[in-house]
Amino acid sequence: MIKDITIGQFFPGKSVIHRLDPRIKLLLTVIYIVMLFSAKTFAGLAAGVAFLLVSFLLSGIPIKMMLKSIKPILPIIIFTGILNLFFISTGEVIFSWKFITVTTGGVRTMVFMASRIILLICGTSLLTYTTSPITLTDAIERILSPLKIIKFPAHEIAMMMTIALRFIPTLIEETDKIMSAQKARGADMETGSLIKRAKALIPILIPLFVSAFRRAEELALAMECRCYRGGEGRTRLKQLKTAPRDYVAVVLALAFLAAVIFLNRVWI
């Protein structure tokens, strides 16, 4: 059932990683990405791995979850891996058959690129595992808020993200209900040609849109009743405050970045 899909996989916890300021966490993620892309050698990449492992261990999120996050993008990794393997022709030839040639350079690039993508996904999923969607939205709003001067709608975007996060589970549940109801009226969504199946979506999509609009209207009214008037003059329940640990984290991340750059000189 669609109900089982979970969105924004967040694992509540009290670890030091959970407690970091979300803005700092975003910054750390950016530094981590820079690390991965500036790594030219496996030794450099190893420093990135070390940084990731330390963060994961501190967060208390099971390593199993890290591996789980890779699963959905496995096809992409394999596809790019194969491309790298066959189209890079530097180094010695290991294997050759008709027009296919595999070289040491190809193998190296394949492993290197695949590792990089895997590390990238693991790192960013650690961010969503340890930061609730609403805190993340909050951090994005605050990081973007200086742009308000140039009329960038930072608050509005954050508000939209919050409402979307709030209503996604509700609408998924609703879709489930409407599907059951139409199935009970004999609607057939599983068989037939593509066009027939697309047509079978109408009895689901129309009620879903009608309901979404009704909800939007009621929500807008409820927000008005609670004095909503945009971002102007708004305060927040949760203040974001940076603590010493945030600075320590940034310094550590920068140290790892320096290590990556240093290790780039070592050829493996």
Partner: peptide
Amino acid sequence: DNQIVATVVEEDVAFALENIGVPPAEI
């Protein structure tokens, strides 16, 4: 369902107070 704005209970209860600019400690 259609009058709850936030994804966390306390954030939702705070919504009106945030709108009228109450200081965080008081919220």
